[in-house]
Every structure is written in C-alpha cells, then in structure tokens.
Amino acid sequence: MSRHADTPHSPAPPAVRPRSRNARGEGEKLRTEILEAMLRLMADEERMRPVPLSLREVAREAGVTAPAIYRHFPDKEALSQAAFDSLFGRLVEAMDRADADAAALPPAERLAALAHAYCDFAEENPASFRIMFNAAELSGDGPDRVAQRWRTAVARLADTGMRLIQSPEAGAVSVWSSVHGQLVLRRSAGGAGSSADTHAFVDELTRSLAAVDPATG
C-alpha cells in the first residue's frame, strides 16, 4: 500500500520487486536485504520527504511481505535503529581509513584528513547524512563513536608538542561543530559554494586550531 491514499489521479504504486525465496538457514541474508532496503529508502530524499516511512514501503523495496520483516525486526523503531547504526558505522570506517592513510603526516594534517573524510561522507550521502543527525529519539553509540575520533585527533596535537588554543575536549567540539555547521549551511543555502570551498574551510580551520609551542618548537 502506498503512503498516500489512492485517488483517481494518483499514480499506481510501484510493483514489488521480485525476489527468490531464501534457502533454509539464510535468515541472516534476508535480514541484511531488509536493512539494505531501508538504507536505500533513507538515501532517497524524495521518497522520505512527505511522511515517515512505513514498514510496508520497506517490504516493497526489499521484495518481501510486511510480516517477513517482523521475524527480524520487532517494529519500525528497531529497523530504524539498525539502519542508523549501519550508517554511523560506515562514517566511522571512512574516518578511520582516512586517519590510517594519514598516519605519517603531522598531527594537524592528520586531523584535516579526518575532517575531509567526514565531509566526503556527507557529500556522497546527503539524504542519509541529514537524517542521521535528526534522530534524537533513537539510542545507539554512533554519535559517541564519531565524537571519539574527533577527540583523539585533537588530543594528538598536544601529545606531539603543540600548544592548543583550547582543551582537547573543547577543541574536538569546536572542530566537529564547525565542520558540520559548514555542511549544513551549504545545504540550507541551496548548495551555495562548492565542495572545494568546504574542504578549503577544513584546511583553514585545522591550521588555526593549534600553534607550535615556542618552548618546544
């Protein structure tokens, strides 16, 4: 059933995508397919815009019946939480890869690499990224895991002889909120500015956060 009541002028609802039955023991595969269907819908801004998703829409996207979802997720909140956990996991993995790739660089450049990865994820997943941070009713440690990456990167500056303008904790909050705010402003301004502008902002921000301590530099 569509989210909207059918009217004489309503388009026909999309057909359920055909799907072969899972063999015995492939329940986990079905759970993954349902979760991936939810993630596809979350990434589609047009389909998310009018009203919240229903489990019937997720079932249609996955090519299963709605009752099949309940064998793996007790309700829509549980499915939503699994989707958010997956998205935050992907963001953390992207930040960790960037940090590892920049391990040989100075700490300020390593922090910049982390911030660039955060921006890249936001730009490549705009609808999902927006929803990730508008779900205060959901639990989960995703935001805390992201925050820990910022704290570690900023603390690394002090550990290597730099004098921080702020404490590591405050500096991490400043960097994260500034980078995230820049992304939100670009979106709210109708995409004003470019991706290059955002990344230039990141470079300037991370350079300004720390200064070499005269006693050690």
Rank of each mutant, 00 (worst) to 15 (best):
L114A: 06
E123C: 06
P106M: 06
E124G: 08
D101T: 07
A113E: 13
A122Y: 05
P107I: 05
P107K: 05
F121R: 05
E109V: 01
F121Y: 15
L111T: 09
A102G: 08
A102V: 07
V92Y: 08
A98I: 03
A94R: 13
D96S: 14
P107V: 09
M95R: 02
D120S: 07
E123M: 14
A94Q: 06
E109H: 13
A115N: 09
A100N: 06
E93A: 15
C119H: 07
C119S: 13
E123Y: 04
A117D: 01
L114N: 04
A98Q: 07
F121D: 10
E109W: 03
D99V: 07
L105P: 02
A100C: 01
D99Y: 09
L114K: 06
P106A: 11
A94D: 06
A103K: 11
H116K: 12
A104E: 15
A108T: 09
E109C: 04
L111K: 05
D120M: 02
A104P: 09
D101W: 00
A103Y: 02
F121A: 08
F121H: 13
L114V: 09
Y118T: 05
R110A: 10
A102M: 03
A100Q: 14
R110F: 10
F121Q: 07
A98D: 11
L111D: 01
P106Q: 03
E93P: 04
A104H: 14
A113D: 07
D120F: 03
A117I: 05
A122H: 10
A115K: 04
A115S: 15
A122T: 02
H116D: 15
A102H: 06
A98K: 08
L111S: 12
